[in-house]
Design a protein around this nucleic acid. Structure first.
Length: 306
DNA sequence: ACATCCCCTTAGCC
DNA sequence: AGGCTAAGGGGAT
């Protein structure tokens, strides 16, 4: 079933959106992108300004796509709001059309627990292994997909099974967190109604969920666009370009990312970029990570505000 | 070919 | 309280 986007003025770049590291289950095949969202396979292709979609469900509708890719976000407005300086503007210019994806909270929760002390390609492997072992197989276009495991199946998984999925020390976190969620019938949707701070506090109660993981879950699945996750890359970017916003920041640049420092940098992001700070984070992260060589070689650090 | 480093965040211990 | 440490597998050198 083919779908067309009507919105003429909806900037949407598939490549930047799928390759910026926010999602782990999309694959490239002959010029096309394939992804599984819930029980639905989405196939898409960028044709000029906007992507063309094909989805596996017979009565699939455009709202499904619109919801997943957050086409309800007014991206030009978001970009206006976050374009506070030349540093972000450079990233926004090159990555124009990058959108934050609205993920399923449960899948996002487990995926980012797996992302602890790891990198994107490895997380992709872990999520693939989990889905293959605990999910349901779906064939489409001659390709094989697996649905993301249910809460129950991960809560009941043995430590050995999770270790086989290459989760390493994260196996224990996934098992215990899944059990907690299954046992108390935890309601992710309820977190959407809470403030950023309240919702984060609840997520931090789960094993394997620290500040970074909680902020990613909030940003990518719980409607908290002000969340500003700090990983080593974002810390590097902020130390390089925004140190002027921190009185003693030069002393901090080589220090490890303690919870205290995390909170300071993250709070800076929310205050400086505003209600769409998470978008700023994604643009900065993807742009400067891709151009990491220039970030590393940078010897002159000019502060934005000073 | 084979070692050896590098990548990364959480939790638990003092 | 806050600094230190360990954990794991893949990719680069």
């Amino acid at each position: 079933m083919h779908l067309m986007l009507n919105e003429k003025a909806t900037p949407f770049n598939l490549e930047h959106t799928l390759d910026c590291g926010q999602v782990f289950r999309w694959e490239k095949k002959n010029d096309c992108r394939y992804g599984i969202v819930g029980e639905t396979i989405i196939k898409l292709k960028q044709e000029g300004e906007k992507p063309i979609f094909e989805i596996s469900q017979k009565n699939g509708d455009i709202d499904f796509i619109r919801n997943y890719f957050r086409l309800d976000d007014d991206l030009p407005l978001v970009i206006t709001r976050i374009s506070r300086d030349a540093i972000v503007q450079r990233a926004v210019e090159e990555l124009y059309g990058l959108r934050i994806i609205r993920q399923d909270p449960w899948e996002c929760f487990i995926s980012y627990i797996c992302a602890t002390f790891s990198n994107i390609s490895r997380v992709r492997g872990m999520v693939w292994n989990l889905s293959r072992r605990f999910g349901r197989k779906i064939a489409y276009d001659g390709l094989t997909f697996y649905t993301f495991p249910s809460k129950k199946s991960l809560a009941e998984a043995t430590a050995g099974e999770l270790l086989d999925c290459k989760l390493g020390f994260r196996a224990r976190y996934v098992r215990e967190a899944a059990k907690m969620i299954e046992d108390c019938d935890f309601d992710f949707e309820a977190l959407k109604k809470l403030s950023y701070g309240e919702a984060k506090k609840q997520l931090l109660c789960f094993p394997g969920v620290g500040h970074k993981v909680a902020d990613c879950i909030l940003l990518f699945s719980l409607e908290k666009l002000e969340a500003f996750p700090i990983d080593v890359w974002v810390k590097r970017i902020v130390s390089n370009y925004y140190y002027g916003n921190f009185p003693e920041f030069e002393l901090i640049r080589d220090k490890e990312l303690t919870p205290r420092l995390y909170n300071r940098i993250s709070a800076f992001g929310r205050e400086y970029f505003g209600e769409y700070a998470g978008y700023a984070q994604e643009y900065l992260f993807h742009y400067y990570r891709f151009h990491s060589q220039s970030l590393k070689c940078m010897t002159v650090h000019k502060s934005v505000i000073g």
